[in-house]
Amino acid sequence: MPREQLLSKVFLEVADSLVADFDVLEFLQQFAEHCTELLDVAAAGILLGDEKGHLQLLAASDEHTRLLEVFASQSGQGPCVDCYLSGRPRIHIDLTDPDVTLPWPQFTTGARAIGFTVVNAFPLRLRERVIGALGLFQTQPGHLSDEDVLLAQALADMATIGILQQRTLAHNEVERSQLQYALTSRIILEQVKGILAERWQVSVDEAFNVLRAYARAHNQRLTQLALAITTGTFDTDQIPHTAPSPTL
């Protein structure tokens, strides 16, 4: 898809986030995927600060567990944390340069292990505060162009809008509640990946892909579907899956 067209699609999806029936995780996952295409990076992740100021992963462009772990290792260290704390973008961070990566040994090891060589981090800004960061990971050397950097910050701002749903921006209480709900939903999703992986005897990554495909095909909201699975109110046999069922 040409860039302009893709960008229009992103705008439409952000606008959709302002209507009532909206799933923040679903939106952000798609959004992260778009970021990788628009900016030609290998992976993108959206991280939110929790009440203690630790960064938590909310959504990633792909849900491979190893990638999620790299993001998780950033709760305390890494370029995204620096960006979150300073409120400034950290761009073109070269992970192959030991001088640069000195402060983040754990993060660097994990990121290098899956082939990332360059990281860029942009703040999710809300008025004078910073609520999280957008992390962009490259496997190829090469810098984002000036234009890309502007676009990346604009995308980070759009993610903020999606997360907070503009109409409620007036109340701080509501902001924090929504951030909290988004983080809780993220944990539910991980728990459900495990449940499905075991029921179907597939990997957690596969379980997620099947679940998401089902939610999309049936116009169901991912978070609600996940919650219904944990409470046992949704029969997961309704979801077609290819792997053989375990003999019971």
Partner: peptide, 10 residues
């Protein structure tokens, strides 16, 4: 970490 929640589900 995500993996702890996944393992919990399993």
């Amino acid at each position: 970490h995500a993996v702890i929640h996944q393992a919990t589900g399993m």
